[in-house]
Simulated assay, not measured.
Amino acid sequence: MRSDATCSPDVLILLCGQNENISSEFLPGQSATGSLMKGLPCCEQSVCREHSKIKGGNLLIFWKQKLVFLATPKAGSSAIEAALEPLAEVAIKRPAELKHISAQDFNRHFAPFLAARSGESFTTVALMRQPIDWLRSWYRFRLRDDDEDPNHPMIGRSFEQFAQDYMSDPTPAHANFGTQSEFLCDAAGKPNVDTIFRYDQIDSFVHFLEEQLDFAITLPRVNVPPAVDVALSEQTQADLTQAMARDIALYNSLG
């Protein structure tokens, strides 16, 4: 589904147009800030429909290493951003439709541009969280999002109810944020990232980054979620496992 919206004039890098029309203002080592053009089309994946509301990590491009970190929403990207942004030549901070651009959209729009400018292809990496734990992270995020709004849909809502909302059709807006497999895979469901690291094995990811960047990395604790009850009944756990089967299979396939 293509969004009819357009990104704000705060776009940091113009990459989503036709390749021959891409701005020549992006150069390695430049600060990725400033306004380049109004009316930039947003990414085409429907997974981005709620990403404009997410506060989280940025897409990071390491020019010398030909490495790109794709920021999977609610999968530890904020800590990666905090630790690595000073080392990246490019950090896309806004709009959220670009900083959380999916693997499919990156490979369609960004990758050809980067290859054309550098003469080499870039390696993509991303994190993936255990799918039900990922949903728990979304629940905690929604609880603290606009929590001063007296009409906030999350007021008094348990994780059990939230999980059922996520599985419902139609899905209410507060639980409508797609799946990790939509973010990480192509239209056929095949992984579209060179290497996906499991969030529960983040030490392996850090070791990989240290080798690639030749820099010791310590991940800070950021966006620490509130302590809330995230228990599920056996029935809802079983239903959720079935509903998230594609994501769970992808997660289990990772090393």
Rank of each mutant, 00 (worst) to 15 (best):
Met1Thr: 13
Met1Cys: 12
Arg2Ser: 15
Asp10Ser: 13
Val11Cys: 14
Ile13Pro: 02
Leu15Ile: 03
Gly17Ala: 09
Gln18Arg: 13
Glu20Cys: 01
Ser23Cys: 07
Ser23Arg: 09
Glu25Met: 01
Phe26Leu: 15
Gly29Ser: 05
Leu36Trp: 11
Pro41Ser: 00
Pro41Phe: 00
Cys42Trp: 00
Gln45Arg: 14
Gln45Lys: 10
Glu50Asp: 07
His51Lys: 03
His51Pro: 00
Ser52Glu: 09
Ile54Val: 12
Lys55Ile: 09
Gly56Ser: 15
Asn58Tyr: 15
Leu60Arg: 00
Leu60Phe: 01
Leu67Gly: 09
Val68Thr: 08
Phe69Ile: 12
Leu70Ile: 09
Ala71His: 05
Ala75Pro: 13
Gly76Val: 10
Ser78Pro: 14
Ser78Leu: 12
Ala79Pro: 15
Ile80Arg: 12
Pro86Met: 01
Ala88Asn: 04
Glu89Met: 06
Lys93Ser: 11
Ala96His: 07
His100Leu: 04
Ile101Val: 15
Gln104Ile: 04
Asp105Ala: 07
Arg108Tyr: 11
His109Gln: 06
Ala115Trp: 11
Ala116Glu: 12
Gly119Cys: 07
Leu127Glu: 10
Leu135Cys: 08
Tyr139Gln: 00
Tyr139Asn: 10
Arg140Asp: 01
Phe141His: 14
Leu143Ser: 06
Glu148Leu: 03
His152Ser: 13
Pro153His: 10
Met154Pro: 11
Phe159Ile: 10
Gln164Leu: 11
Asp169Leu: 02
Asp169Thr: 11
Thr171Gln: 12
Ala175Lys: 03
Asn176Leu: 04
Phe177Leu: 06
Cys185Ala: 10
Cys185Gly: 04
Asn192Asp: 10
Thr195Gly: 01
Arg198Trp: 09
Tyr199Leu: 13
Gln201Ser: 11
Gln201Leu: 05
Phe205Ile: 01
Leu213Ser: 05
Ile217Arg: 11
Asn223Arg: 14
Pro226Asp: 15
Val228Gly: 02
Asp229Lys: 04
Leu232Phe: 14
Ser233Gln: 11
Ser233Met: 01
Leu250Gly: 03
